[in-house]
Every structure is written in C-alpha cells, then in structure tokens.
C-alpha cells in the first residue's frame, strides 16, 4: 500500500509527497491540523490541507523571514511575531543577543502544542527556556489594534489569505502594524507567490494594501521547494531603514550567526526580483518604487 499526501497547487496542478505515516490529525477550533512522516521531507505540518513546513526545507523560509530584517535594523530589541506557532521564526530570532523580547501572537494554541510534540526541530524553543517569549493566543488583528509605538520589528508569519489568516492580509491589519511599530520599525510578511494566477492575485493585493500604509515597500524572494511553484516572496515594509543601503554586511558577519540559506550575498540578491514580478507589483502601486523601476 502506498500513502501519498497531495495538495492542489492550482485546480490543474498537484503536488504529492509520499507519506510513511500520519502522526497527528485533529480539527481545532480554527482549522484542521495534520502532521505526517515522509521519506523525502521528514516530518511535515499541514493546516487545512496546505503545506506549512517540512523538516527538510523549513530553514529557507524561517531564515529569510528573520535574518533579512534583523540584518537591516541596527538594534531590534522588541519583536512581535504574528502567526508562527511552529516556532521556526522564534528559533532564528533567538540567535540574536540583542533581542530582548518576542511577543508571539498565534490564534491557535493547538498548533503550538502539536508542533512542540511532533516538530521539535522548530518548536523546541517554545518551551521558553530563553525567558524572552510572551505568548498571546488570540486573533492577530485584535491583538495589534491595542498596540502603538511598541515594536522594532513585526514579522507576519501567517498562513494564506483565506481561513484563519484572512484578517492578516487586510489594509486594517497593515495600518495597525504601522501604528504598532516605533518610528524606525520594520514589518516583514509572508507575501505569497507571484507565479500561479490566484497566488499572484493575493500577492498583488497584499502589496497594494501595504503600500497604502508604508512609504518604503519592497519584496524579496526565496526558493522554497514545497510551496506552490517554489518561488516565494516576502514583503519588507519600513518606516526608516532601507533594505540594502542600511544593511551592513560587516555588522552582521561579526555576530557570527550560523545559517544554511541566508548569507549577505543572498540578502542583496533576494531584492532583485524578476521582470514579471516587478510588473505585477508596479501594476498595483499608485506611484511607487516598482513603477519607477519600470520607467513608468
């Protein structure tokens, strides 16, 4: 007997992973949570049937969503992570001594419990032996409404823009993030993929809404094999620091942080996105960076 996990990347494209066994399956108050064991990718977590992370390639996502802003902001101390109940982003943040506090806002406590039990590779840090994490199990949109001028960095480590993560792709959410950041704060978000039409549409919509709240908005990319098309984007929205001009290769190298994907070269290269992506972004900006790049 063969057991395969299949996710529809579009109506006409499927992605399948051979599974050895299913370790966990339960419908929480918010979503279906499943954990599988596979020969190729190790253990992996799915939410509502969508691949969230695998042990084999999660380092790419978590390093890129964390080290890029951390290498730009010169002294990020107070960090807010929205979503991210698997712990991967927190694990990367804890590599920085300058980080004083991490507020983790995850709507679904069960995700944290399941990940701590089955995915210690990312979630073991959530035992909070560092003493730096504060947990808030609530809707991110609700949490952020009450914050103002508090954070140096906000990382929006969300699911897709449907299901429980829906509210984290809205203009009211990005506006509230702007308010919650200090005057030199940075917001980084999971920004979907530019490739398949539906994902590209979600990506454009997110960009359009972020541009409404932040003056400096860029996207950067990474290659994530288990996400649809493999080509994935992150949003970099900033009140003050420029993602490349304020990035100090030397300062970051001196920290001596070990990474598998992220390097200062990758950092720089990641912001040079393909032509069609520039076009998609410029199409939804009233008068922004990507428009200028396209000579419009």
């Amino acid at each position: 007997m063969e057991l395969w996990f299949t996710e529809n990347h579009t109506k006409n494209v499927r992605f399948s992973v051979k599974v050895t066994k299913q370790l966990y399956s339960h419908r929480s108050e918010f979503q279906s949570i499943d954990v599988f064991e596979s020969p190729e990718f190790g253990r992996f977590l799915t939410l509502d049937g969508y691949m969230m992370l695998t042990e084999k390639d999660e380092f790419i996502y978590h390093e890129m969503i964390t080290h890029v802003p951390m290498a730009v902001h010169p002294h990020a101390e107070n960090i807010l992570v929205i979503g991210g109940g698997d712990g991967g982003t927190v694990r990367e943040l804890l590599k920085y001594d300058c980080v004083k506090s991490i507020d983790l806002v995850e709507i679904d406590e069960e995700v944290v419990e399941v990940c701590m039990k089955y995915l210690p590779q990312t979630a073991s840090c959530l035992d909070n032996s560092s003493g730096k994490i504060r947990f808030y199990f609530e809707d991110g949109l609700k949490y952020i409404r009450h914050c103002s001028n508090m954070y140096d960095l906000i990382i929006v480590d969300s699911t897709d823009p449907f299901g429980p993560g829906e509210g984290l792709f809205t203009m009211e959410f990005y506006g509230n993030c702007f308010k919650a950041l200090k005057d030199d704060g940075i917001m980084v978000n999971q920004h979907e993929s530019p490739f398949y039409d539906e994902d590209a549409f979600a990506m454009q919509r997110a960009h359009k809404r972020i541009v409404n709240s932040f003056d400096m908005c860029r996207v950067y990319q990474a290659h994530i094999p288990t996400y649809p098309s493999g080509h994935w984007l992150f949003g970099f929205a900033s009140k003050k620091y420029h993602p490349l001009r304020d990035f100090s290769e030397k300062r970051w190298a001196e920290l001596g942080i070990e990474t598998k994907y992220y390097t200062p070269h990758v950092h720089k290269g990641a912001f040079y996105v393909p032509a069609y992506v520039e076009k998609l972004l410029s199409d939804v900006e009233p008068d922004g960076y990507y428009k200028k790049l396209n000579g419009e």
Binding site: D139, K142, R145, E166, G167, M171, E172, G175, K179
Partner: peptide, 18 residues
C-alpha cells in the same frame, strides 16, 4: 463570523487614526 467583526473594529480604528 468573529474574524469579520474584528476586521470591522480594526478598520474603524484605522479610519480614525488616518
């Protein structure tokens, strides 16, 4: 749905700020 109520509240809060 609860999450839609959250959106409405947050949007009102943003409209006031902006």
């Amino acid at each position: 749905r609860e999450k839609d109520i959250e959106r409405l509240i947050s949007a009102l809060s943003e409209i006031r700020r902006r």
